[in-house]
Structure formats: structure tokens, C-alpha cells
Design a protein around this nucleic acid. Structure first.
Lengths: 156, 156
DNA sequence: ACTCAATAGGTCAAAGAAAGTCAGACGTCT
DNA sequence: AGACGTCTGACTTTCTTTGACCTATTGAGT
């Protein structure tokens, strides 16, 4: 069995026990598996990325940690559809706004959240000297990122 | 648990009991936590700065003290300060996250909104081939745009 | 008034603690 | 052998903690 797979298993084990969130120490985990600490980052990058349905945050320095959150897909098929299929690599402002207003209508996001999202992807917010092609690429990523975040709460 | 966090909690405990202001002795507090007195300054600098919504004053010499005052500003005042003064033309990711978490702590935005904002300015969301300088310029604009949106609703 | 010692807080740099990054070595399929 | 996935180690960045030295205030003794 591959080391990466073992670590992946181990973390998923923890996640299944401790609900949807787990916090761990990179060095301890590396010690436990007798590997380089950076191996943990590799596992996170290749198996617990947002694309895989996970979010991670961390802190350095004394008392540092890594937290992994499993995004629950059940309550939000619509969102995951948007993230995985609907939104591609590029999204214009108009289309962003259309999507956002649909989400609002379907009561998947509140009016306040919709306004927040719209202001983030607005032309005004992105008015820096960068080609439009790249801005639209960025909009796509921002939308996905925000939708993932929304999907990760709200397991109602 | 981190020492800094314990001290922070301790002070906030005092503040919640004694209204909006608390006065303490640096050396006594350090003794109580068994740490170097300068540790107290570190906690003040990293957790009770004006950005965090606190002011501190102090006196040296006999009968010296440190006073910590929680500044009670309305949400929209705080937001306007951020938009007009605090955030300039450029803002790194770390600083964005710090500001956002402060807004959450001050209950000016909800946890959900904070998460949404954080995901919008994240490295992940902006991972397109654009120089970092421009990304930080964009972050500044996005933050302002989002904060304005928040301010324009409930002017409480 | 002046000086000096005691008291109390401030500053800063260096050490320590954790996590992040990335290039390159190593493996394992085809 | 080549391509792709895995793993490591050296170096970096961020956050925390401490200690040595500095500055301000007070008060007692002259």
C-alpha cells in the first residue's frame, strides 16, 4: 500500500468519526507515519483539494495546526453541479450575475450573500490592468471558490 | 493551547464582566501566567490593536498600569474606516484574512459572510497567471467593493 | 530644588515552534 | 525507456516566547 493512500485513509477515518471537520498537527502526523512533514502537504494537495470536496486551513508557528473540512454535497446538488459542470474555466460578468440571481431565487443563498458575491465579481472590483480573458478566468475561479464555501455550511 | 490565546481570553473575560474598559498591571499578569512581561505587550499588539477594535494606554513608574478600552463603533463607521483609510491600493491575502476575521469577531459580518469573503480573495480563487502586485491591487478593490455592499444594507 | 533608587512599563532582536514551497530523486506502470 | 505519480530535504515564512536593555514616574533623603 502506498504511503499517501494510508495517510488519506487515516484522515478519512478521522473525518468519519469526528463529523465533518478534523484538526491535526502536521509534524505529529508525519512522525506517526515516519515520513517527511511535507508528505502531508502532498496528500492534502492531491487528495483533499477543493476539487475533491474538501477545504483546508492552517496556522504556522507555535501551536500551529491544519484543519480539514469535508464539504457535504448532499444538501447542495445544485451548487456542486454549478461547480463541477456548469461553470467552466471562464465566466463573464453578465453570466455571473445571472447565476447569482438564480441562486437567490432558488433561495440557496440569501439576498445579502448574493449582493456580496455580485460585488466581488463586479467590473468595479476587478478594474485593474489585466486582459478581460484573465478576468473572466478569475471570475470562474472566484465563483467556484465561493460556491464551495457556501456548500460547506448549510447542511440543513 | 497557546499562551497568547490564554492571555487574550483572560482579558476578554475581564472586559465582558467589567463593561468596556479594564485596567491591569503588566507585571502581575505576567506573573500570573508565568511568562515574560513583554509577552503581555505581544498579546496587546496582536490581539488588542486598533484594527481589532481596542485602544490601549499605559503609564510607567510607580503605580503604573495598562488600560484596555473596547471601542464601540457602529458597523458602518467601522466599514467606512476600512474602505476610506485602512485599505489602500493593495492588500495581501494574509491581511485580507486578518481584517475579515476581525469583522467577524466584531459581529459586523456573520460567520457565513466572512467565509464567503475569504473564499473570494483566496489564492485559490485568484490562481491565474497575473503578477502578485496586480492580485493584491485587485484584492483591495474587491474588499472595498464587498464592504461597501455590506455597508449599504442595514445602517445600524 | 536636586539626586538617586525603586518601580513599572516599552522595545527590539534573537531563539523557538510549526507549517509551506519547490526542485529533484525515486518508483511504477505501460 | 518515458511519463506520471510519490517522497524527501533544504530552504522559507509566519507566529510565539523570552531576555537584555531602555525610558518614564514616584518618592525619600539631602
Amino acid at each position: 500500500m502506498r504511503l499517501s493512500d494510508s495517510i488519506e485513509q487515516f484522515i478519512k477515518e478521522l473525518l468519519s468519526q469526528e463529523s465533518t471537520e478534523v484538526e491535526l498537527k502536521r509534524n505529529e502526523l508525519a512522525e506517526y507515519f515516519g515520513c517527511a512533514p511535507s508528505q502531508i502537504n502532498y496528500v492534502l494537495a492531491t487528495r483533499f483539494s477543493p476539487d475533491h470536496g474538501y477545504l483546508t486551513e492552517s496556522r504556522r508557528g507555535g501551536g500551529g495546526y491544519i484543519r480539514i473540512v469535508r464539504v457535504v454535497k448532499s444538501g447542495s446538488q445544485r451548487l456542486m453541479y454549478l461547480v463541477n459542470d456548469r461553470i467552466g474555466d471562464s465566466l463573464g460578468e453578465e453570466e455571473c450575475l445571472r447565476l447569482i440571481s438564480q441562486l437567490k431565487e432558488q433561495m440557496i443563498v440569501t439576498a445579502d450573500e448574493a449582493a456580496l458575491m455580485a460585488s466581488a465579481v463586479s467590473t468595479r472590483a476587478l478594474s485593474v490592468p489585466v486582459p478581460d480573458v484573465l478576468k473572466d478566468a478569475m471570475r470562474a475561479k472566484m465563483m467556484k471558490s465561493m460556491l464551495m464555501t457556501i456548500a460547506s455550511r448549510n447542511r440543513s
